[in-house]
Simulated assay, not measured.
Amino acid sequence: MDVDAAVFDVFGTMTDWRSSVADELADVGSRAGLNADWPTVTDAWRRRYRPVLERVLGGELPWRPLDDLHRLMLDDVLAEHGLDDLGEAGRDTLVQAWHRLRPWPDAAAGLELLHNTRVITATLSNGGIGLLARLTKQAGLRFDCILSAELAKSYKPDPHVYLTAAELLEVEPRRLLMVACHPDDLEAAAQAGLRTAYIPRPLEWGPDAGRVDPPAEVDLVADDVIGLARALGAMG
């Protein structure tokens, strides 16, 4: 595929948010003397993500950094699961858990292969610049550039986010590849004029999650980031 740059979704595509956040919930909860089904709490937290973003995009809520939205969602989830006793310090630690997500095993190696090609790589996540800088550094994910929806003061799937990435990277949208495991992200990117690549992450929602169908139309399907790199001309 002849593209100049590839931008990557991070939560789910490059990192295993579910097990990472569930482990931190269990640790913080244990130290606070709380018991719960922590994977279920994690899923409930994540499922609030899209509805809250839609409220921002619809003008019901003002734009604010994702950390702030994660805190709003967390407070609701803890109340719903009878975990109101968790203090402010514990809640702050849990919001920061999204800065410490573990990468999928192929993510770092695939980016290293891409680093040796002419294709520029960047994040394109709803996470803020600070969050993404810390996450990618601790996870060993070497991108050429950190881009965030924060730069557009919006959130994906707003087309302005994808077009802002193309503008900042100084590439035409049709020569910018959006890489994600989420069909709705890819569909929105395609509608904005980007090329799209799908990487399945069947374990994103855990081993018992149902099958996620790939997008109806996508330019490239790769098994993982290593396969994507090879499809884009990387050797090795």
Rank of each mutant, 00 (worst) to 15 (best):
V7D: 13
F8W: 12
F8A: 05
F11G: 02
T13M: 04
R18T: 01
S19G: 07
L25D: 00
L25Y: 02
A26D: 11
V28I: 06
S30G: 15
S30P: 01
N35H: 14
T40P: 00
T42M: 02
D43R: 03
R46A: 07
R47S: 13
R50F: 13
R50S: 13
E54G: 07
R55N: 09
V56T: 05
W63C: 09
R64C: 08
P65L: 12
P65N: 10
D68A: 15
L69G: 02
H70C: 04
H70R: 03
L72M: 14
L74K: 01
V77P: 02
L78S: 03
E80P: 02
G82K: 03
A89T: 14
D92K: 09
Q96F: 02
A97R: 00
W98R: 02
P105S: 08
D106Q: 09
A107L: 07
A108Y: 11
A108I: 07
A109T: 08
A109M: 04
N116D: 15
R118E: 14
I120K: 02
T121V: 10
T123W: 14
S125D: 12
S125Y: 13
N126E: 06
G127N: 04
I129W: 09
G130S: 12
R142M: 10
C145M: 15
I146H: 15
E150V: 13
A152H: 08
S154E: 05
P157C: 13
P159W: 06
Y162D: 11
T164N: 10
E167H: 14
L169F: 05
E172T: 11
R174H: 13
C181D: 01
D184W: 15
E187P: 00
A189K: 02
A190C: 01
A192W: 08
L194V: 05
R195L: 05
A197V: 07
I199R: 02
P200V: 07
P202M: 11
E204G: 03
G206S: 08
P207C: 12
P214N: 06
D223P: 00
I226D: 01
I226P: 01
G227L: 02
G227V: 00
R230T: 13
M235Y: 03
